[in-house]
């Protein structure tokens, strides 16, 4: 049986998928995951999940948004002087990067 392993490097981080282990049951899976995915890096926590419990949504299903003009949703579509607060500037920058990577205009 296959188990997916998610690793959190430090408290507050997201758990990120880092690989899988084969094990007959949950207890053995955690034992093997510890060795394979926890031992060599600082690890705050591991999630070990039966692979079959992971539901996949593929690219066709995730492409539902962004097909019509929704420029009003983008912070970058507005002329705001963001210099008054660093977090607003950061957020705008982040938004611009996302738009670029999505290929939006």
């Amino acid at each position: 049986m296959r188990w997916e392993v998610f690793r959190q490097a430090k408290r507050g981080d997201y758990h990120k998928h880092c690989g899988d282990v084969h094990a007959p049951d949950r207890e053995m899976a955690t034992l093997f995951a510890q060795i394979q995915h926890g031992r060599r890096m600082t690890t705050e926590s591991l999630w070990v999940v039966p692979s079959e419990e992971v539901t996949e949504i593929d690219a066709d299903d995730t492409a539902f948004g962004g097909r019509t003009d929704k420029a009003y949703r983008w912070a970058t579509a507005y002329n705001v002087d963001a210099s008054f607060a660093q977090e607003v500037a950061d957020s705008e920058e982040e938004q611009a990067e996302v738009e670029q990577s999505r290929g939006d205009d």
Partner: peptide, 11 residues
């Protein structure tokens, strides 16, 4: 017997 048990014992 399996890759996992191999790694565990080696560790």
């Amino acid at each position: 017997p399996t890759l996992e048990s191999d790694l565990a014992l080696s560790n």
